Amino acid sequence: MSKGTITLILAGGLALSGCQSATTSSTRAGEFGCIAGTVGGAVVGGVIGATIGSGTGQLWAVGSGATLGAAGGNALTCY
């Protein structure tokens, strides 16, 4: 995997983690778990997309995988 792809995955994960809404709990641990789940899902989804995609479609596969992974991680860890 190239450095550009890894940079894109990490930048996308960080950008998506900034879109988190405030949690209802007042503890920092709950907020950290929510952000970590979203970013972790984006990274895992991006890596899976990078392994599935090939050629010029690989960028689309990475972007789609990161987006869907972030949404899945958010749904699992944020309540």
Rank of each mutant, 00 (worst) to 15 (best):
G49D: 00
R28Y: 05
T56M: 09
T77S: 12
E31P: 00
L59Y: 12
Q20A: 15
I48Y: 01
Y79C: 03
G41A: 05
S54G: 00
L14R: 09
T51Q: 07
V39M: 02
G30F: 12
L59R: 04
K3W: 13
C78F: 09
G45L: 06
T24C: 05
Q58N: 12
A50M: 08
R28H: 01
R28Q: 14
A50S: 14
S2M: 00
A61E: 03
R28T: 12
G12Q: 06
A42Y: 04
G69L: 07
W60K: 06
G13T: 04
S54Y: 00
G46S: 03
S64D: 10
G46V: 07
V44C: 05
A15W: 11
T67A: 15
T67S: 14
A42W: 01
S25A: 15
G49S: 11
G46K: 12
L14M: 12
A36C: 07
A70D: 00
A75C: 07
S2C: 08
L14H: 02
G13I: 01
Y79N: 14
C19Y: 13
Y79K: 15
L59F: 09
T67F: 15
V39C: 05
T77K: 07
A42L: 07
I48C: 00
I9W: 03
V44N: 00
G73A: 11
Q58L: 13
V47D: 05
M1L: 03
V39Q: 07
L10Q: 07
A15K: 06
G65T: 09
G33T: 11
G40F: 03
G45H: 08
Y79P: 14
L16Y: 11
G45C: 07
S17K: 04
F32W: 08
C34G: 05
S26L: 13
G63T: 06
G63Y: 03
G37R: 12
T27M: 11
G57I: 02
